Simulated assay, not measured.
Amino acid sequence: MAYSLLKSGALKSHFYNMVPGFPEIKCFHQFFCYLLYEFDKFWFNEEPESIMHFNQYREKFHDQIKHLLSNPEIILTL
């Protein structure tokens, strides 16, 4: 998910607001950790019936992250 957001250009505002100058790989690692942490919270809050619904909830979470990243002022950090 982190890589697809990077490739699509959705992370541009986040990186632009987060770091003066060019972002480094460390910035991507921090975003990846943010996604893991937030998805864990999201998963437990949603209380899915079983792991078989993983893709459905992953897509819902992905849509939420894309919506957050559509804000030009966004910085996603832990």
Rank of each mutant, 00 (worst) to 15 (best):
F28L: 15
I25D: 06
I75S: 12
K26L: 11
Y57L: 15
E38D: 09
Y34N: 08
S50V: 03
K41R: 13
N71P: 02
P23C: 05
S13A: 14
F32T: 11
F61D: 01
H53Q: 14
S4G: 01
K41Y: 01
L76M: 07
F31V: 00
E73G: 05
T77R: 14
P23E: 06
F15P: 10
W43I: 08
L68T: 02
H14A: 02
Q64A: 13
D40Y: 12
Y16F: 08
I51L: 13
L78I: 11
F54E: 03
E59I: 05
L5H: 09
M52C: 04
E59H: 07
F28A: 11
K7T: 05
E47Y: 02
S4E: 13
E46I: 03
Y34M: 06
I51D: 10
S50I: 01
G9L: 12
W43C: 07
F32E: 15
L69H: 10
P48I: 14
Y37A: 14
C27Q: 13
P23Y: 13
Y3V: 05
P23V: 12
S50R: 03
G9P: 06
S13T: 06
N17H: 07
H14P: 00
G21S: 10
F22Y: 10
L6F: 15
A2Q: 08
K26R: 15
L36E: 07
I51F: 04
M18V: 00
W43P: 06
I25Y: 06
Y37V: 02
R58P: 00
F61V: 00
P23T: 13
Y3C: 00
Y16K: 13
L11G: 02
F31S: 01
L78M: 12
K41L: 10
Y34E: 12
S50H: 10
V19Q: 10
I74Q: 02
G21W: 11
E47W: 01
P20I: 00
K12Q: 08
E73K: 10
H29F: 15
H29C: 15
Y34K: 10
F44H: 10
L36Q: 15
E24F: 08
P72V: 04
S4P: 06
L5M: 14
A2L: 11
K66Q: 05
I75K: 10
Y57I: 00
K41Q: 12
Y37Q: 15
C27K: 03
F15G: 08
G9V: 03
F32I: 03
S70W: 07
F28H: 12
N55A: 05
P23G: 07
C27I: 05
H62I: 04
S70M: 08
Q56K: 10
K7W: 04
I25Q: 04
F61C: 00
L6A: 13
F31L: 07
Y57W: 14
G21T: 08
Q30R: 08
E47L: 09
F54P: 05
M52G: 14
H53S: 13
F39E: 04
Y34T: 04
Y57P: 01
C27S: 12
P48L: 13
K41S: 02
P20R: 07
H29Q: 15
S8V: 09
W43E: 09
